[in-house]
Design a protein around this nucleic acid. Structure first.
Length: 321
DNA sequence: TCTGGGGTCCTAGGACCC
DNA sequence: TCTGGGGTCCTAGGACCC
């Protein structure tokens, strides 16, 4: 069985740990430059979409008396490590999937639900972060179970298992196709055109049809939703690419400024590289104008720099950049 | 006026080889 | 007038995720 442990409103929860007065209050967290809303407390979700530009919702935020915070990523990273560290005390079979999610691989026993409730309580007690847990025979189904755990908290208390055929079918019939893991906007549109509106209907399409109309990725998804596990736990993951990018505050017109920023980003990237004890042999540098500015001509340039030897040296990388 | 940042994987098509 | 077939590797672009 796979269990997906997902931190509730992670960034907001982190802020609440250090400022308990925010508990029960409406809170949003903003991206770099305070441009977008990247996290919302439960109370805010109904009226502010994820990723929304702040300036379009300022009045609403004020009217609803929402507490607005700039992101503190180093704090969130630290809290994430604490949560993951706690999970790893329960099992070594743990895949850190993102800053606020982890898959655990566990034996299917009659005690599983009780054990997962204990995990949930332990994480809350040790880190202050509330989590929801969904468990099922495959990763994709664990994702579905997690959605249910979160959606029906009064009944599930944040823990839900899909551990028999009846629950699996019921869950898939309930699940909107667009909410399934791996089905984004474009695939949703395509599937709905074919009359597929829920996850269960998707699993009724033939393998050949899925392979022909979509890709091997979607075929794997079908197997996963059918309860046949094809995605395994990836406990150790080294990043294959490391990125440092920023949007600038306003329009920049001086070459020297760009040069300084690129140097800074390159140094940051090489620090990340050394932290995971890797070397790199290619550098990619790109720049582009504000893509939301429709009144002026857009500009975008990029280039790859192949290094003569693999390195993690800030110096070598900055010279190359 | 103001719109984030960091990742993964797959596929089609071109270049090249025998 | 006729112009193969099969393979690999690389890259850009597109899809997705949180």
């Amino acid at each position: 069985m796979f269990a997906l442990v997902d931190c509730n409103n992670f960034y907001v929860s982190c802020e609440r740990v250090f400022n308990p007065a925010l508990e029960g209050k409406k809170v949003v967290i903003l991206s770099n430059n305070d441009g977008c809303i990247i996290a919302r407390s439960e109370e805010v979700k109904p009226f502010v979409p994820m990723g929304a530009p702040v300036h379009q919702h300022l009045k609403m935020l004020q009217a609803q008396n929402v507490q607005v915070y700039s992101a503190n990523f180093s704090l969130y990273g630290d809290m994430s490590r604490r949560v993951m560290g706690t999970l790893k005390r329960f099992t070594t079979k743990c895949e850190i999937y993102s800053v606020d999610e982890a898959f655990l691989q566990l034996e299917q026993t009659t005690q599983l639900k009780t054990e997962l409730s204990q995990v949930q309580q332990c994480v809350k007690q040790w880190t202050g972060i509330p989590v929801s847990i969904g468990a099922a025979p495959t990763k994709a189904l664990a994702k579905v179970a997690n959605k249910i755990a979160k959606k029906f908290v009064p009944r599930t208390h944040g823990v839900y298992l899909i551990d028999n055929e009846e629950k699996r079918v019921k869950a898939l019939r309930w699940m909107d196709i667009g909410a399934v893991w791996g089905v984004g906007r474009n695939l949703t549109r395509k599937l709905k055109e074919l009359g597929v509106y829920d996850a269960y209907t998707f699993t009724q399409l033939s393998d050949a049809f899925i392979r022909k109309k979509f890709s091997v990725v979607m075929l794997r998804l079908k197997y996963e939703l059918m309860g046949k596990s094809v995605l395994s736990l990836e406990a150790l993951r080294y990043k294959k690419s490391i990125t440092v990018t920023r949007s600038f505050e306003g329009t920049q017109k001086h070459y020297a400024y760009l040069e300084e920023r690129i140097t800074t980003f390159t140094v940051k990237a090489s620090e990340k590289l050394r932290r995971q004890q890797s070397l790199c042999c290619t550098l990619y540098i790109f720049i582009r104008t504000n893509r939301f500015n429709t009144s002026q001509k857009q500009y975008a340039r990029s280039m790859y720099v192949s290094l003569p030897f693999a390195t993690d040296s800030s110096f070598a990388l900055v010279i190359a950049s």
